[in-house]
Every structure is written in structure tokens, then in C-alpha cells.
Nucleic acid binder design. Structure first.
Lengths: 111, 111
DNA sequence: TCCAATGCCTAGAATATCTACTCATTGAAA
DNA sequence: TTTCAATGAGTAGATATTCTAGGCATTGGA
């Protein structure tokens, strides 16, 4: 039995969501579509991944939500970054860059 | 209360361990030191992280272990890559590159 | 004699993520 | 007119990863 499961998110989900919302306030469904487009379909968020993450981020005070009418005329819950969320996003992006550099150092090692 | 905890590994632990061992068979303690050196101390593996991971990788047939005398003259459990482990490492590295490219696409997005 | 370094290990908790659902509305195609 | 895809939000439960916080034993040097 082969383990073909590809680990996609690697703990970047929060950062990706925050980044999407930083571009402009969006509802959950739109966030999933957006991250799909931007990543050329690499990220295809499942709802069971997305919504709990949104709630988590709101509970932590990084996002704030409000119901508005969506583009299609239906009610949808729009998320926006809080100031804390913006700071957090910046910190996450910084750490992400440090992290992938550290990984690159290891992977490139010859010895 | 600020959440300062930095998530370091992001699911790359297995890949990092396999890469270290791919360079040359090593015992656990040496793997931790090695990954520390190579990453300029970014990765500082705790033993409670390292040893369960090694056992996991061995259970999955990606590593094989044997007791030998270490550099210091003590007994230590040396791990080596299996063929399956080598294939797995290559796949993980490939997926990792795809993944960080996808993240980069999102993070660089302007809109 | 005592401590730091070397070396291996486990238990338990917290988190993140995935699978697999539920529920409701709308619009268009058959 | 029924039916299906798309839009939109959600939960429950399982699994895997990682961390904290310990334990144990040996060695060499201060």
C-alpha cells in the first residue's frame, strides 16, 4: 500500500487565508476560489479545512467578519483583516521566508 | 497574551531527516546536530520530536537501523536510507518545491 | 565529586488537517 | 417542472505532527 497522500498545506493555511483577505475582504467561498486561482490550482481548500480555519482566525482576533450581500445577491460572511491580523501576516511571511531558506540550506547540502 | 510560538517544521521533518541520512548514515543525535549546523541553527530538533520521527520512518520502511560504535566509542543506532526511503525523499523534495512555488504565487499577488 | 555532553527513549497534550457529511438557496438545463 | 450544479456556511470525528517534559545510562573532565 503506497502512501500517495500529498501534504499540501504544511501549516501555511493561516498565512494564505490572511494574505487573501489582505488583498480585499472576502467571504470563505471566495477565499477558496481565490487561492485556487492564484496557485494555479495547487491549493484546493476543502470546506472542512477552510471554515474551521476561519473560525480559528476570528477567535484569535486576526480576522473580523460581517454578513453582507455577495456578488451574486446572496448573503455571505465577509472576513476582513484586523490590525493584529495584519501584523500577524507580516510575521508569518517573514518566518516563512526564513524557514524555506533554512530548508534550502539543508536540501542543497552536498556532503 | 501574545502567541509567540514559531512553527518551525511545517511538516518538513521527515524530508530533513531523510536528507541528512542520505548524505551518510547517522545516528539520531548526530542528525539533530547536523540539521542544526546546516540550517545555521534554525532547526533545533527536540528529542521528543526526533526519535518518534525516526521510529515512524523506520516503521514505514524508509529507514533501516543498526547499532554500531559511534565516533566517541559508544553504542549508537545508525540509520540508513532504504531504496524506498530514497524514492520517498525525492518525491518529498519535488512536492516541497512545487509547494513553495505555489505559496510564492499567492504571497506575491498584488491585487 | 559533580556536571556537561553523548545517546536513547516515552507519555501526554495541543494543533492542524482531512474525510465525510449536513443544510439551504439559486438559476439554468432537460 | 424537475433536477442538478454552483453558491454559501457549517460540524463531527479521525489521524498525524509536533511540543513539553520528563526518564535512563555512560563518559570525561574540571
Amino acid at each position: 500500500m503506497v502512501d500517495d497522500r500529498i501534504e499540501l498545506l504544511k501549516g501555511t493555511l493561516d498565512m494564505l487565508i490572511l494574505k487573501a483577505v489582505a488583498m480585499q475582504p472576502m467571504h470563505g467561498y471566495a477565499i477558496a476560489l481565490r487561492l485556487g486561482q492564484l496557485s494555479r490550482d495547487f491549493f484546493q481548500l476543502q470546506q472542512g479545512t477552510l471554515y474551521p480555519a476561519l473560525h480559528r482566525l476570528e477567535d484569535r482576533g486576526l480576522l473580523r467578519s460581517k454578513w453582507y450581500e455577495s456578488e451574486t445577491g446572496r448573503e455571505a460572511k465577509f472576513y476582513a483583516l484586523t490590525r493584529k491580523g495584519r501584523r500577524h501576516l507580516e510575521a508569518e511571511m517573514y518566518n516563512w521566508q526564513r524557514m524555506i531558506k533554512a530548508v534550502a540550506l539543508v536540501l542543497r547540502a552536498a556532503d
